[in-house]
């Protein structure tokens, strides 16, 4: 039997590029399952009292946190529908831009056709340097830690902050960033807040033990699949849905290349014999 030649890396990359382009041009619309954890998160947020204050905060890098954006955007739309309030806590230098990206993408502001008014229903804060120390200061004494919002407006002039003084005024903390462990350690471990993360798939693999450590207080969705599930729960199709097509095709290719590599190895061995 003729041997299979060793594939050059460039050929593999070429196949992958085509594989990524196919669903971009012609979406496949592959089906995906529900997840009990994602459903639990959705129900948890659905059942909060009207006017609940939710904090979106943490530390991360936008390039990684993009994977958390499908679920977070869907969740922001859910919050707008239910009349909740949203405040941010950016603990990373790129995080304010990411939070603005989430709000802009969710189109919840009145200028984008939504119902949220800035300063009354939601507010964006500037970068809070200090990591864990900044987080503790934020939770202990919000008005002592933050004086202006992202645009430089004093927080005393924004009605959403009138009744926000410390962690006791926060109903749920949502972290669409890699740095979820800090949030769990401090917000949940020290202050008893319920923490939700639309986690990246790698983060889920590393941080899922915390769901067992804090049952009923820590929840995580799993990567783009979790984002797609949350989008579907909110009757929307976004980046999460789009990624499922690419993920399906590349999954088949990964398995195929591993099998092909082993077949190539076996045939080379037979030839040498």
């Amino acid at each position: 039997m003729a041997g299979i030649p060793e594939l050059k890396s460039e050929w593999i990359w070429g196949v992958l590029i085509v594989a990524f382009l196919i669903p971009a041009v012609n979406p496949l619309g592959v089906d995906f399952p529900d997840s009990p954890i994602t459903n639990e998160i959705y129900d948890l947020i659905e059942n909060l009292p009207e006017g609940s204050l939710i904090v979106m905060g943490g530390s991360g890098v936008i390039a990684f946190d993009i994977e958390s954006s499908p679920g977070m955007i869907a969740c922001v739309r859910q919050m707008e529908r239910l009349g909740y309030k949203l405040v941010t806590c950016p603990l990373g230098s790129e995080t304010p831009q990411y939070h603005k990206f989430i709000i802009d993408s969710a189109k919840v502001d009145v200028s984008a056709g939504g119902s949220w008014v800035y300063g009354e229903d939601y507010a964006l804060l500037p970068y809070l340097p200090g990591g864990t120390a900044a987080l503790v200061a934020y939770l202990e004494d919000f008005k002592g830690t933050v004086s202006v919002d992202m645009r430089g407006i004093p927080i005393s002039e924004l009605p959403i902050f009138d009744d926000f003084n410390n962690y006791e005024d926060i109903d749920i903390w949502i972290c669409p960033h890699w740095g979820f462990v800090t949030i769990i350690r401090i917000c949940t471990g020290e202050y008893g807040l319920t923490a939700i993360s639309f986690a990246q798939s790698t983060a889920y693999a590393f941080f899922s033990p915390y769901m067992q450590a804090y049952p009923g207080q820590v929840y995580m969705t799993n990567g783009y699949l979790g984002g797609a599930q949350y989008e579907r729960l909110n009757d929307m199709k976004g980046l999460g849905h789009m990624v499922q097509d690419s993920y399906t095709i590349v999954s088949v290719l990964i398995a195929g290349f591993i099998v092909l590599g082993n077949v190539t190895m076996v045939m080379k061995g037979e030839e040498e014999e």
Partner: peptide, 16 residues
């Protein structure tokens, strides 16, 4: 402890 946390935030700003 809280005051030191705030100092830590200020020092981190300086390091930027």
């Amino acid at each position: 402890s809280n005051e030191l946390n705030i100092w830590s935030s200020l020092i981190t700003s300086f390091t930027l």
